[in-house]
Design a protein around this nucleic acid. Structure first.
Lengths: 264, 264
DNA sequence: CGGCGCCTTGAGAGTAATCAACGATAGTGG
DNA sequence: CCACTATCGTTGATTACTCTCAAGGCGCCG
């Protein structure tokens, strides 16, 4: 409905391709490659079968054999592993616009789960639909490949974060990363973005206890670096925060001048 | 030379495709998909320009803009990040048979380095050669995609390892992973494989100090779980070790019945 | 033989975990 | 509208895992 209103409000010369889409997947991919109107329509088409889900709901279980992909449109989901001890480790966040491919077909059974952290709007995309989309829309295929490179790099960054940074540094790095990712999905402004996670969720992400997350957050606040209230995060001294976390956004953003085609 | 001997020893009906290759890349990919003789020849062809390199040598620097891929034939290399503090975190190992694509063309400058840990035999593959190989050999392309899924999963496993496991558990998990990876490259037998790393290298992998690596190793030895001497690792109680590390090899091995084509 | 790199060991410090309790907040039902 | 309850956030005290610093030993290579 608001989409139609804005169509009325803007000059009629604006085409669908130029019109900024409300779809976070479209917004994200448009930052990676240029998409045609047909590409955008196809992406919006595939996002139609969305379902609202509650918090803490599994989308894919550890032992499940399904090969569907998951697209998050709103909310916050994650890949995570539950240990026998009860400990949970979050391996990756799925923000609005993130498409989560599941490798179960090639590497045996799933060894981790995918689930929502907060109430979310997600689409389950049958593998065949995704295959068709990619076959018919080479721009989209290319954009998805680049997005995947970024996901891989993000995973490696998390290894570094967990492996050799202190609690304060880890949290600073995570917050800087989240801000950029929300910005790329068109969901952040003025150095602030949604952060609906609990401190326990952050702990399971950063490899810290919830108590220590709390104290680390207080330290960040005390230093006037961040503001975190009402499920919203604001970076007050972004440069400083980036220094603390040794954060370099190169792994999240496309190169200035895109290079060759991704090979595989 | 031993290759020619075995050719003599086996029935003449064995073709080049059936003859087990000495090339670790071929051996690895053959476990993922079936390759034709032409596929094998092409892979061996691309491995010809190998260079022997000393230990601790950078193959790709942090700020380098090269888009070549790196193939390790012998030795031990890694992706790593050097912090300003001097700390190093290893993000991934490159074992014989591992092909390391560098994403620099899509995501700005390299933000980490790739280098040898010990004397190694590596090939620098120009991007164009890799593109050609993949275009002409769909089986190889498919195998490389599957191998990449496995690398991604490995990265996520390392996140879990660093995020929520104790020193002993981490090390147990890493050793189990290494054993399987060497087995897939045809370089392990009887639960033992090469491990030419120093304790400092292990520390930079596991997020532990070299002192604590030493003590953790002693504990594993004391419990009769592993034997580590002369740059060779042997798992004495593999099942037990897998339990300690909660190790599930699913992420390293292909599914019993391969599924559809990888999508992108 | 000397030097260097690596492994080993001891002592002390520190970061973060655990345990426990209390306060704040929000959603629920009477 | 308010009490009730559950979840989440906060705080203090204690424990422990791991780090840092320091020194000595061992083996290897020039």
């Amino acid at each position: 409905m608001s989409a139609r209103l804005s169509l009325v409000a803007v000059p009629p010369s604006w085409t669908a391709a130029l019109e900024p889409s409300r779809n976070p997947l479209v917004r994200k991919l448009q930052r990676l490659v240029s998409l045609t109107a047909a590409d955008v329509t196809a992406l919006e088409q595939i996002s139609l079968q969305s379902r609202p889900l509650g918090p803490r709901l599994d989308l894919i279980r550890d032992d499940e054999g399904c090969g569907d992909a998951i697209l998050v449109l709103e909310g916050f989901a994650c890949r995570y592993k539950q240990r026998q001890t009860g400990q949970r480790q979050i391996m990756a966040y799925l923000l609005p616009g993130d498409l989560c491919e599941v490798d179960v077909r090639y590497l045996g059974r799933m060894d981790h789960a995918v689930g929502t952290l907060v109430p979310s709007l997600v689409v389950r995309i049958p593998r065949q639909n995704l295959t068709d989309l990619i076959a018919r829309h080479p721009n989209v295929a290319q954009a998805l490949r680049v997005a995947r490179l970024s996901e891989e790099a993000t995973s490696r960054e998390w290894v570094v974060n967990l492996g050799c940074r202190s609690a304060l540094e880890r949290m600073a790095h995570l917050f800087c990363e989240l801000m950029i990712r929300f910005e790329m999905a068109g969901l952040a402004e003025d150095d602030s973005c949604p952060l609906p996670l609990t401190q326990a969720d952050l702990g399971d992400t950063l490899g810290l206890s919830n108590v220590h997350v709390n104290r680390t957050l207080q330290e960040l606040r005390r230093q006037g670096l961040v503001e975190l209230k009402g499920k919203s995060l604001r970076l007050l001294k972004r440069k400083h925060l980036e220094e603390i976390g040794e954060f370099n956004p190169a792994y999240l953003r496309p190169a200035e001048s895109p290079g060759d085609q991704a090979v595989f």
